[in-house]
Design a protein around this nucleic acid. Structure first.
Length: 466
RNA sequence: GGGGAUGUAGCCAAGUGGUAAGGCCGGGGCCUGCAAAGCCUUCACCGAGGGUUCGAUUCCCUCCAUCCCCUCCA
């Protein structure tokens, strides 16, 4: 079975085949760099990370581009509020963004282009749109004329004639000079609120509209037609709809073949909002003592098209679940029994691996995939006394393989003990032999204080660092 | 007001027209000198009300709740 994805464009699950055999071009909307990443951002970015990793696992060469929006209303507003030049201000959050990606063990994109480095490319597209009659200039900027683009609304399934300004009640009483309220800005002429943020253009000094950056950067790095474009569901309209309009109007070609959108995250059943006090950045959670891998696990294990309810009970559960996997791999790593792997065990391994892969192929159903993993764990644990070193290695090899998809396993090399610690373990074993359990328990406690947990097994004591 | 989703055990979360995976927590038991790890066992009338059907959690309708979008929020 091929990999299948739910395509927002067609509202159906479709078989995935890239335009160019073996290579996938993928553009993912990145962060606006005016704050640290919050768990909502992470939900979307982790879905995209899973997408990237699964395509790789399936043998594709993935060319992912993730942009950084470093010029928009919010970055200008906050840089001015802080009295820092825009580039200096966004630098802070760009650096933080890359640190956070590293913390969460993201597979990096091929390029992370910044909007401000691509102003000429954006101007180029706008000029083309002007030439073709899809855009017009006014006193305050250049706008895309949606009436001129037939397919407008095909992604969001909105009727362009029915779009009303201010329907959401969020639009201030701006004096628009646009021909139609839903026409969107390609270029914004400089206004005093922009401070010293401005670029030269054929339409005077100003700055690009928000949507044009993604068209310019995706086409520059990946070509005029992309295999996959993804982002949060909230960006479907107007952002992605506008990207389609301006890109396809400019090139005359299909812009994106598969659109994938992730649902939002809520916190303890409620919308996450600063005003509700339930707004958390990654850094907030790390400060509270939660591990990056448990955050990754938790945000990874709900299907991406379903709203994810982030709870603190959930993150504690994630830590416990990870410990179960850790202990399983730890136990396997200490198996010494010699002999061939049993038929039944090999069959279970093959079955659960197939189930895991089939689940991920089916529109990235990771929840079902994890179910297969835990079934494998339970079955192997159940027959652990019959597990041989050879079979244990096979299982560990399987987990090492899927770690390229999961990114939250603990397969690290063993820490070594000091001579003193080795001596303590030996002394405890001797004490046990002599039935001096008081001394044995004392030594176990002393080792635990050093972060070393000793477990007795039929093969003798094993130890792990906590 | 319009459009789009979601609602499964204390919590998280798959799934199916024939009586519901998995993880966490809790109860009971086994194993252990004691632990740890592990195993076994227990824990759900699938938001509410109708309808279609031999049979619905799964399809249809209504309602309720929550979330997303309707010009710049992942």
């Amino acid at each position: 079975m091929p990999v299948r994805f739910y395509n927002t464009l067609t509202r159906a699950v479709e078989d995935f085949t890239p335009l160019q055999e073996g290579t996938v071009t993928m553009y993912t909307c990145g962060p606006t760099v005016y704050n640290f990443l919050h768990i909502g951002n992470l939900r979307t970015f982790l879905f995209e990370d899973l997408l990237h990793r699964w395509l790789r696992y399936r043998g594709y060469h993935v060319r992912q581009i993730m942009n950084l929006t470093d010029i928009d209303d919010k970055t200008i507003r906050d840089s001015r509020a802080n009295g820092i030049p825009l580039a200096e201000f966004t630098r802070i959050y760009k650096d933080a963004f890359f640190e956070d990606l590293k913390t969460l063990n993201f597979t990096p994109a091929e390029v992370f282009p910044s909007a401000t480095d691509h102003i000429p490319e954006m101007i180029g597209i706008i000029e083309k749109l002007m030439e073709k009659g899809y855009a017009y200039a006014t006193d305050d900027g250049v706008y895309f004329k949606i009436a001129a683009f037939d397919g407008y609304g095909k992604l969001a399934h909105l009727d362009k004639d029915a779009l009303r300004a201010g329907a959401s009640g969020r639009v201030a009483n701006d004096e628009y000079e646009k021909e139609t309220v839903s026409d969107f800005a390609l270029w914004k002429k400089w206004s005093p609120a922009d401070g010293d943020v401005k670029w030269q253009s054929p339409w005077g000094e100003g700055r690009p509209g928000w949507h044009i950056e993604c068209s310019a950067m995706s086409m520059k790095y990946l070509g005029e037609t992309l295999d996959i474009h993804s982002g949060g569901i909230d960006n479907m309209f107007p952002h992605h709809e506008n990207e389609i309009a301006q890109s396809e109007a400019a090139t005359g070609k299909q812009f994106v073949r598969y659109w994938l959108h992730s649902a939002h995250l809520i916190v303890e059943g409620e919308k996450m909002a600063k005003s509700k006090g339930n707004f958390f950045t990654l850094r907030d959670l790390l400060t509270k003592g939660y591990s990056a891998r448990s955050i990754r696990y938790l945000l990874y294990t709900t299907h991406y098209r379903k709203p994810l309810n982030f709870t603190f009970d959930g993150i504690k559960g994630a830590e416990a679940a990870l410990k179960r996997i850790d202990d399983f791999l730890f136990t396997l790593g200490n198996i010494k029994t010699v002999g061939a792997a049993g038929e039944g065990m090999l069959k279970t391994l093959a079955e659960q691996r197939d189930k895991f892969e089939a689940a991920l192929d089916d529109d990235l159903n990771i929840a079902e995939g994890m179910g297969a993993l835990f079934e494998l764990i339970r079955t192997v644990n159940d027959g652990m006394e019959r597990v041989t070193k050879e079979f244990a290695e096979r299982v560990i090899e399987f987990f090492s393989g899927i770690e390229s998809v999961l990114g939250f396993l603990n397969l690290g090399a063993k820490d070594e003990l000091t001579d003193e610690e080795h001596a303590m373990i030996s002394e405890r074993t001797e004490a046990k032999k002599g039935k001096d359990f008081a001394r044995a328990d004392e030594l176990r406690k002393l080792l635990l204080e050093r972060g070393i947990e000793v477990r007795d097994t039929p093969d003798g004591p094993v130890w792990k660092r906590g």
